[in-house]
């Protein structure tokens, strides 16, 4: 089975940099740099961050 991969879409207009996604991500895909959320393309599309983001700022596209 091919590994699931995700493409992270961050809506920076909505993001308030609360850091929930940083903590919730199992593969440490997120980091906050200079008060801005950054991601490193390691997403496995578990969708945890999409659910827990209180600002509806994250949308994860899944590709096989």
């Amino acid at each position: 089975m091919a590994k699931k991969q995700g493409i992270v879409n961050i809506n920076h207009k909505r993001c308030k940099v609360c850091g929930i996604c940083v903590s919730v991500c199992p593969v440490q895909n997120y980091k906050i740099e200079n008060s801005k959320l950054k991601e490193f393309g390691k997403c496995i599309a578990c969708l945890q961050c999409e659910r827990y983001c209180p600002d509806m700022a994250l949308i994860i596209d899944t590709k096989q």
Binding site: R14, K16, C18, E50, R51, C53, P54, M56, D61
Partner: peptide, 28 residues
């Protein structure tokens, strides 16, 4: 193409971001 979160259609998305503090549970 980015997928659409259809449930967000229940919200007035043009009014986002909401005014709650970062990390507030209300958004969830």
């Amino acid at each position: 193409m980015t997928k659409e979160l259809t449930y967000l259609n229940f919200l007035k998305q043009e009014r986002l971001p909401h005014q709650w503090c970062p990390g507030c549970g209300n958004g969830i």
